[in-house]
Nucleic acid binder design. Structure first.
Lengths: 346, 346
DNA sequence: CCTCCTTGTGGAAACGCTTGCTTATGTTTA
DNA sequence: TAAACATAAGCAAGCGTTTCCACAAGGAGG
């Protein structure tokens, strides 16, 4: 049925080994033979069986993306789509296939990962954002599988990772609001077990302290990376007797929730509440008003993660890459949501 | 290094065949042997080599998603993210892995597909939205590979597919505006080579004719599934001497563009222009104002597509599924963007 | 008591490919 | 002219499974 290397060999009057060598560009194959075999492969519609190849070469030319546990929700976040886009693009340029994997529970997730890696279905993995204590990281690390983290681990520091300097990013975001004249600035954070939440919160704190501004514990609320969290945070803040004039929000999606609530209550952005958030997903410029956001180069993060991972996969030919931890630069995109200076009240 | 079936066999004092049979739950294995072998597998941390298994069974337990050509752009559309989410969820429930593939050009795309299918890396494919003449469909069809189309083909009608009744959906959308009292209704379409564009346009036409409303060719503009297209369409319509009071827009993303342009010009939605669009992506309720949209159950489309595909993959055990073409019901979600009745002017 | 089935297991080939070793055919070198 | 080498291609083993076939042991049927 399907045409194998043997069929090609027979038809070309050479041995299977020769055909295989033509395929892999072995140096000791004569130009003529090579050309002849190639013509025949074309004629017969030959395609190498990837499984057979993988079996002997012990390498699959594919990697997997491991989505964080509550994939159902997070999936909807454009953030992950951008990340995946970056990964898929780069991987496919390097001749790698990409497999998407996610589990409903952490246990399921671990099972999936171990099936894929131990079963030699993929050569390596990309983890999208890490929690404080991550069983998957432990698994991958102790078994010596190539993997890269988009984000950072607070447990290991010799791990391949691509990340944003979230502390600095939050510092910059807060600073921007301060430079616009805001002094009463709140922070809407993410889940406390995510490292990114903590780093961004810390950056906010640093900036406030650095400018001698008051850090009220009332003005820091935690939530999820969901629109609803923003909505809730907004009503919390607006009901405060003494409320902030600006907010640093941990993720654009959360900002959408804030925005929505504000518009329902007929508050205006940025006049009643200015906003800066993170990630600059494609939709942050589409909202009304457009949201100022720290662009962290999501696509670029994904692209780079894939690059580093593929470099780290042991190959017969090349030395492994040297990169360990890479920081992708961020930059603040100022849009309407923060273009307002409050009246000085001191 | 890695533990194989032979290692387990040796340690358990049985033959490799027996271990293999334990693995696959063969009926003629004694309960005792089975238990013993399983314990040893656990102890030794055995994981079956998926490649070896695939090689002999000629089946990979994985499918691939083929993204439409200009993946770079479309990827950003939440639409695809939702679709992928549905597919991945269902596939993983059925024990299948999902591979994402996309090519920059149609030729590259075809090469990727043929590498994956002919190379027996995947058992089947899901195509996301079809163009008028699709080489990939031809390839899959003539080679007899299992695949399902999310959308429909105008060339073959014996193809596995999951789709929305786009004609009816557009009819409903238009009808809704008419029932709100609009008589001057325009249509913002997508690329004419996409079947979905044509079907929706046709539904709009049918509804207009059915109510005896004027179909001005001025009031139908084509574009891409991009925000920019909406922006352009908006300025076109607003500069018309005789302009519509409502628009049916082929995709929510396009509506965002319309909305943005309108707000820049200080027009108000729905008072100056009412809007209904399609797909009901998670963000359509987040815009200001929220957009009325035809919910086509994107996640469900993906989920079902995966289900049908996996059923159609020939297995030793089961008969292939019987479904050929499945229509997922749609429903109109009315939001603020269409909640306005124009003043009767006749 | 002998044959025939059933049950549980082992042996070995096969899946399609790569690769180290070997061989055949020139081409240099001493 | 013989020895030494470079080049091109073939042979066969092996990657980790599955599965057909064979086989042993025990029980049932005649």
């Amino acid at each position: 049925m399907t045409v194998t290397i043997k069929d090609v060999a027979k038809r070309a009057g050479v041995s299977p080994s020769t055909v295989s060598r033509v395929l892999s560009g072995h140096p000791r194959i004569s130009v003529e033979t090579s050309r002849k075999v190639k013509v025949i492969m074309e004629e017969m519609g030959y395609h190498p069986n990837i499984m057979a190849k993988s079996l002997v070469s012990k390498t699959t030319n594919s990697i997997c993306i491991i989505l964080p546990k509550p994939a159902e929700e997070l999936f909807s976040n454009l953030f992950f789509m951008e990340l995946i886009r970056g990964i898929v693009t780069q991987a496919s340029r390097s001749g790698y296939d990409v497999l998407i994997s996610s589990g409903a529970t952490e246990k399921e997730e671990l099972a999936a990962v171990s099936r894929l890696l131990k079963g030699r279905r993929v050569d390596g993995a990309i983890l999208l954002y890490s929690r404080k204590d991550d069983a998957v990281i432990d698994f991958l690390k102790t078994n010596g599988y190539p993997f890269v983290l988009v984000g950072r681990s607070d447990k290991y520091d010799d791990i391949l990772s691509v990340d944003t300097d979230n502390l600095m990013a939050a510092y910059d975001a807060t600073n921007h609001l301060i430079s616009m004249g805001h002094t009463r600035i709140g922070f809407v954070s993410g889940p406390p077990n995510l490292i990114v939440s903590r780093d961004r919160l810390e950056g906010y704190r640093k900036a406030m302290e650095h400018h001698g501004l008051e850090l009220k514990s009332d003005w820091i609320v935690e939530g999820e990376f969901l629109q609803e969290s923003g909505y809730r945070a907004m009503s919390f803040f607006m009901n405060l007797p003494s409320r902030p004039t600006a907010l640093v929000v941990v993720d654009d999606i959360v900002s959408f929730g804030v925005l929505r609530g504000l518009s329902e209550l007929n508050y205006s952005v940025p006049a009643d509440l200015a906003l800066v958030s993170f990630n600059n997903i494609p939709l942050s410029e589409l909202s009304t008003p457009p949201i100022s956001s720290i662009d962290i180069g999501i696509y670029h993060l994904g692209y780079t993660a894939s690059q580093i991972l593929i470099q780290a996969i042991p190959k017969q030919s090349k030395e492994p890459g040297l990169t360990r931890r890479l920081i992708i630069p961020h930059r603040l995109i100022v849009r309407e949501s923060s273009m307002f200076s409050p009246v000085r009240s001191e």
